[in-house]
Structure formats: C-alpha cells, structure tokens
Computed example of a mutant assay.
Amino acid sequence: MSSLHNAVKAQKTHRERHQPDARKNLGLLEKKKDYKQRARDFNKKKATIKKLRKKALIRNPDEFYFHMINSKVEDGVHKEKSKAEKFTDEQLALMQTQDLKYIITKRTSERSKIEKLRARLHLISATDKPKNVHTIFVDNDREKEDLNLAARLGTHEAFLGRSFNRPLMEDLKKGKFSTYNIDPEQVSEANKATRKGYKELEQRIAREEQLAVLQAKMEIKVLLKSGKNKPERIVQEETKSSAPVYVWPKRERSNLLCQNDKFLCFFSLIE
C-alpha cells in the first residue's frame, strides 16, 4: 500500500507555459509543434513560388497552349471562358456523367409518362386540346334535319358541348347530380389534384424537350468524332435549345443515308 502511495505521489502534473499577461493581446503562446507546422507550410509555399518563377523564366513565349483560347482578359484579370453560353447546367452535368444510351432511355421513359398523364387528365382545361368528333349516322336528309341531338344522346341541351362527364336525363331526374349532394372538400381536393397533375405534365414536357436537344447534340458529336464523313462548313452554331447545323457535300449523302437516317434531320445537304 505504501509503494502505491509513493508512486502516485512521485507523479508530476506537467503544465504548458502560458502567454504572459503583458502579451495576452498577441493570442495564445506558440508551442514547438505549432512552429513546426507553420515553418513547414512556409517552406512549401516558398518552394512552389521558386518553381513557378523558374518555369516562367524558361518558358517559350511563342509556344501555343490551349489556355490562350480558353481564357480571356477582363479589366486586366484573366478569366476562364464559361460553357454556359452553349449548354444549360443540367445538360453539362448529363454530358459529363452519362452516355447517349442513358439519354435515349430517359427520354423514352419521359415520353411514356407524358402519354399516361395526358390519358389520365384528358386535357380538360387545356387551350390546345384535341376536338373530339361524335359521328351519328342517319338514313336520309329528312331524318338529318329532324335529328334532336339531346334526345338522341339522352342528355340535356346544356351538356351537348361536353366530351366528358355528360349526365343522362334519367340521372338528372333522380337527383344524382344535385349540388346538395356534392361535398365541397372533395371538389377542392379534386381541383388540387388536377392542378398538380397539369403542373407535373408541363414539367415533364419541358424535360423531354431538353433531353431531345441533348440527344441531338450528342449524336452529332458521335458522328463527327468518327472522322469518316466530314462536313464542308457549319451553318448554325449550337445553342441551349438547338443542335448545330452542318453543310455536307453531295457525295456524302449516300453514306449518311446508309449509316443512320436519324442524323439527316440535323444537317443541310448540298443538292
């Protein structure tokens, strides 16, 4: 017991020297490990500056490098040229991370979802909705003149212009469509769901258009990269909403037709 007591008593608490009161305005007192870290960082920066200075001295001013055309000077400051003039952020991200097959797959999926939404919403409140035609056959012109559409369809004349939710007269007489039986909360929820559906449809149509433009740009790049068919000149540069348009010599027309017909919609051919 005495040996343990002596061992504990022999231990000393080592405390680091603190900053003197007269120098507290300078912050914490720097220790050796802090000095070593600061000195290492300083020497590293010094070596980098020395290397860059040497590289600048032996550099050939007539040598071409791509930064000459990929940068510009604005107010005496070198700035990188942005690619946002040709592509949107979403297009750049997709081009850098995905390939053409992925774009085609996503576009096909978007088209499928758009068709399902259109079939579910029926485009009830759209301004450019298709006009439905209901053909009624009669035996002669007299029967045509005496035809009463409301009686023939079994509905009220006020509902003849409807192509959806057209109630029958017998249902109206029974009071199935009475306004007293309609729950306002259900109507509000239905309107909310309809607005949400049209908003989703609008967003998916816009996304499908962006994917179509991106697919066209990538297909043209694949064709140009092959090096087999070279265009004579470019007619229109690519933009955010369109692919580039090239002029191809007449002798290349048969080759283009043999390779893939879908590329022809992006090129102008000399006759």
Rank of each mutant, 00 (worst) to 15 (best):
P130G: 06
K176Q: 10
D146S: 14
N229H: 11
K116Q: 15
S3F: 04
L201N: 02
I234A: 09
G175R: 05
K228F: 05
R233P: 02
I124T: 12
I58L: 11
L121H: 06
K106S: 09
P20T: 05
G76L: 06
P130F: 06
M1K: 08
G227C: 06
P184C: 04
A47R: 14
Q37L: 12
I103Y: 07
L214H: 01
P249M: 02
R17Y: 03
S109G: 04
Q236D: 05
V245Q: 09
K174G: 05
R204L: 13
D183V: 03
T88N: 07
T97C: 00
N70K: 13
K240T: 14
R204A: 12
K116R: 15
K79C: 08
K240M: 09
A39I: 13
D34P: 02
F66R: 09
E185T: 10
F159D: 14
G76K: 08
A93P: 00
L52A: 14
Y180L: 14
D99R: 08
A39C: 04
D41N: 10
R23Q: 11
Y102V: 08
K176C: 07
T105Y: 09
H156S: 14
P231F: 09
L147Q: 02
K33P: 00
K196N: 12
R17A: 10
N70C: 08
Q19D: 00
S254W: 01
V77C: 04
K113H: 05
S125M: 07
Q98H: 09
K225T: 06
R59I: 03
R59Q: 12
R251F: 02
G27W: 08
K54Y: 07
K230Q: 11
K250C: 01
E209N: 10
C265N: 10
L92S: 09
K113M: 08
V245G: 01
Y246R: 03
S109F: 06
F87H: 10
Y102W: 15
D89F: 07
Q91R: 04
Q37K: 14
R23C: 03
L29M: 13
E74D: 09
N70V: 00
E143T: 06
K173F: 06
N6C: 03
K131G: 05
F266K: 01
K72W: 02
L168E: 08
R152P: 00
A126D: 15
K36H: 11
A150L: 10
I205R: 09
L257N: 11
K116S: 12
K173W: 03
W248C: 03
L264R: 06
D89M: 05
C265W: 01
E16L: 14
L172S: 06
